[in-house]
Write a protein that binds this DNA or RNA. Structure first.
Lengths: 337, 337
DNA sequence: GACTCTTTGGAGAGCGCTCTCCAAGGAGGT
DNA sequence: ACCTCCTTGGAGAGCGCTCTCCAAAGAGTC
């Protein structure tokens, strides 16, 4: 028997009712006589019927999927091994699965890729976009907005625009780090910042410096890193060269902190004895590092889940105005500071 | 102007041709007079036309997406922070994007989720499935096969069945590790295996033991771990307790090796001076570990890309018989052994 | 110049579903 | 007993696209 997949029509015929009725029991719209429902369900089971997704979304204009767009500067698919994006994915998937929505993974690392993302959304392959972007200069938010694609960003957009987003109070995070150094009496602190074309990096740096200034330390040396362990090591080397007497280092993420600790240890410094180190994120490397990192916790999974929630809500009510949700960071004291 | 998205019909009217002709120039099927093509393209540009995906796939029976299914035992979305899955994702995305195919992420950690995966595929939401499964008892391959869903597995199926897959020669990997210990003259080696309900774990263990036996070491103590750093530490502790004189440890993945090294160092042993450690995978932790891990490299990205390639090929030619591609592991010598 | 063959545009039939509208029948009110 | 209202099933019109089939016109052949 070469039966192709059964359609609504087949089920209706077998149950002796109309297509509309079968559709009603499948979707639970409107009342259907319980006995007829029974008959229909039976027919569905017997035929092994399953609704065709394309046909359905052709008329409903809904696909039940959203695009999860990762916009790296040019890192390509390397981003997937970054624990930060892993945590985002986890948070997004965790929320979406409860709503029967599926994420399709897209990379927006080249202009060609960006165009493809917009086309993907415009042709209705997904109902909306979750955009994880770090660089302030990213053009995708504006393009998506123009194409009227429901979008929620992870991190506020480079230029102010009417779009929903979730974000962290990065300045607050910087202040938390500063407070820790003050608390443990460090007086010669420096910082390894993230890439300065990233809002979050700037904010962490600003918050840190301002809080230090308010505590009587007008100048905090800073070296720019690239959010990788290697860049953290390099930055630490430079810092040590220019300020050999440094006794506290705030790194703008855990990976860089890890790199810094390694250099410090290799140079015979004790951590936190000689130099205290504070990281940022509280991701896996913070725990794996020796000594374990004191860090500023960013609830990435929660933020990602919220981002998904905001999108799904917006999808259900397109009239809703854009929303922003800002999360608060938290100091996690471990061994390094 | 409240224009809804333009359709083929709109473009056709504007260009003064039929729907079929516009469809032809959009899809590049059949010849169309260059001048008419010009007119049509112009009309497309003027209207901002973009093909509707649902309508198209309703008739073509193709969606241009595949499901990337991660089947964890019950770990939930934590898997996304595991560098192993990150590497798989990277490899898959890297290949698929060159072919204009998009992966939708799905978790199959509960039976309910497994049913949803099968339904998702059956209703034609995706053209095929990439299934990353470790546990030999996973039922999804069989279900997918029964539903006639084009599928490619990462790791061979628990029970032999006509399905395509990519895999690593895990036994060969175990042998490579054994050879290293023999080469550096270790005589009291033990191993921390992965979960034994995972084929790969069994194979690595078997390969390792057999090779050691062939070199005159009939018995290799083994403790079962769970592929996490913590489980590696726990296993090392037990091993040390039962065999205090151990001078070589083969851990079935880098994460566990990392955990083991930590315990060793904490107990005052030198690595590799007193105890040499060999990991498996060659993922990020192998490099981050101090000392850097000597490990068995598994080309995960390549394997994942191949998995995607095999699926895409099968999609284009459904008659093609199942294929299996086995990759060879490689010894990477660093500091720990 | 009549023929066949090739090229290319148009017409129209679906793909499988949802949803609006209509009709039939039963319940309730007077 | 009549009328209105509510409930519920069916008919049928699309949703936007592809693709087969047909026709017209041009090219080539003898």
């Amino acid at each position: 028997m070469i039966r192709s997949t059964p359609t609504l029509e087949d089920v209706a015929r077998l149950a002796g009712v109309s297509r509309a009725t079968v559709s009603r029991v499948v979707n639970g719209t409107r009342n259907v006589d319980p006995r007829i429902q029974e008959t229909v369900r039976d027919a569905i089971a017997r035929t092994g019927y399953i609704p065709n997704h394309a046909a359905r979304s052709l008329v409903t204009r809904r696909t039940g999927t959203v695009a999860l767009v990762i916009s790296g500067a040019g890192g390509g698919s390397d981003v997937f091994v970054d624990p930060f994006f892993g945590r985002i994915t986890a948070g997004v998937v965790d929320f979406l699965r409860t709503r029967g929505v599926h994420p399709v993974l897209m990379l927006a690392d080249t202009d060609r890729a960006r165009v493809e993302v917009v086309e993907f959304l415009r042709q209705g392959s997904a109902d909306g976009a979750l955009l994880v972007t770090t660089h302030a200069a990213e053009t995708l938010p504006a393009r998506l907005l123009k194409a009227r694609v429901p979008t929620v960003l992870f991190a506020r957009p480079g230029d102010p625009m009417p779009v929903s987003y979730v974000d962290l109070d990065h300045q607050g995070g910087g202040r938390l780090a500063a407070a820790r150094f003050v608390e443990i009496g460090r007086t010669r602190v420096a910082t390894i910042s993230g890439p300065l074309d990233v809002h979050a990096s700037q904010d962490r740096l600003t918050g840190f410096r301002e809080a230090m200034a308010r505590n009587g330390f007008p100048y905090v040396p800073a070296v720019e890193g690239g959010f990788t362990a290697a860049s953290g090591s390099a930055a630490m080397l430079r810092l040590l060269d220019e300020h050999p007497d440094v006794d506290g280092v705030f790194a703008a993420n855990d990976l860089m902190a890890q790199g810094a600790v390694e250099v410090l240890l290799a140079q015979g410094k004790r951590v936190p004895g000689d130099v205290a180190v504070v990281g940022f994120d509280d991701s896996a490397p913070a725990l794996a590092c020796r000594p374990a990192l004191t860090t500023i916790r960013q609830p990435v999974e929660l933020m990602a889940a919220k981002m998904a929630e905001v999108l799904v809500t917006a999808l259900d009510d397109p009239e809703e105005p854009p929303r922003s949700v800002i999360f608060e960071p938290e100091l996690v004291v471990r061994a390094s500071a």
